[in-house]
């Protein structure tokens, strides 16, 4: 009896290890999927509180809409360092506010962030936050927080394959990602369940659990198009199931892999509108 139990335990352990190995392999494919070295886009963020009645979801308030220009470039030997700039175009009350961010793959190297406050005419450096506490601030007042917008680092999580599932008529792998201790200390989430498109190596849905283990957000990718041979979700929806608020991120226009010089991803782009618009004119054929 004891021997049978031991064999079962060993088999379960091997199966778990194999599932973890397979899950990691799937996630590596997701991580290595070509998503373009540069992104130049006009993005809208629509946020509203909602209620569900008779199976239909209805907005409870006037949606708040922010429109921005977003430029991102991957850098570094593995193209895992990221530089990005976001400039708000709407609403008028926040027009011209800009955000410049440098993310680094190197563990322990803090993110550099600057914010341009157009009303004050001043660029402020923003702190990256403590390693031991999560950053809760929202991204331009939306349901995305800064952690949701950060570059995904594969080594920040351990993965378990939960099995196959059909989601939105697509064959998916369902994987659980649990942050390693280093990440867990500063993450808003205790675990994530991910639905990965088997054929396209793309995360279609993520369910995020807060630090108390309660389901807090669902992030979904949709309107997937192929642009210059690269798969792009044109619409990303984040549903905060706790606050019953939803944000829809929409790539209104987007181009990939256009050359963006390093000079553009500097503080000057935040403050010098003439320079910024001239450079953006070079990408006038946004589609």
């Amino acid at each position: 009896m004891k021997k049978t139990a031991l064999i079962c335990l060993i088999m379960v352990a091997f199966a778990s290890a194999a599932a973890a190995g397979q899950a990691r392999e799937i996630m590596e494919k997701v991580d290595n999927r070509n998503d373009g070295q540069t992104v130049i886009a006009h993005v809208s963020l629509t946020t509203f509180r909602y209620m569900t009645q008779n199976g239909k979801t209805r907005a409870m308030e006037q949606a708040r809409i922010k429109r921005m220009t977003f430029v991102k470039k991957d850098e570094g030997p593995r193209e895992k360092d990221h530089k990005s700039v976001s400039i708000l175009r709407e609403p008028k009350s926040e027009q011209g506010i800009g955000f410049l961010q440098y993310d680094y793959e190197e563990v322990g190297k803090e993110t550099d962030q600057w914010m341009y406050l157009s009303a004050l005419g001043k660029v402020k450096r923003i702190v990256a936050g403590n390693d031991n506490e999560p950053k809760t601030g929202s991204y331009f007042g939306s349901e995305f927080n800064y952690e949701d917008m950060e570059a995904y680092n594969l080594d920040d999580f351990t993965y378990t394959l939960l099995g196959p599932e059909t989601y939105r008529d697509t064959d998916c792998w369902v994987i659980e990602a649990v942050p390693v201790l280093r990440k867990a200390k500063k993450s808003n989430y205790s675990r994530q369940i991910l639905w990965i498109d088997k054929d396209r190596d793309m995360i279609l849905k993520a369910v995020l659990f807060n630090r108390n283990g309660k389901k807090t957000k669902i992030i979904m990718s949709g309107n997937i198009e192929t642009l210059d041979g690269i798969l792009v979700p044109r619409k990303i929806v984040v549903d905060n199931v706790e606050s019953r608020r939803r944000t829809v991120l929409l790539y209104e226009t987007i181009v990939l892999n256009r050359p963006v010089d390093d000079e553009f991803l500097r503080v000057r782009t935040l403050t010098d509108k003439g320079y910024r618009e001239r450079k953006l004119q070079e990408f006038k054929d946004l589609k």
Partner: peptide, 20 residues
């Protein structure tokens, strides 16, 4: 302020990705 928010934004998960 009455923006015309695209259809699909208020729908449940399954209907959230109608044509942009």
């Amino acid at each position: 302020v009455c923006h015309d928010v695209s259809a699909g934004m208020y729908d449940e998960e399954e209907g959230a990705f109608e044509t942009v």
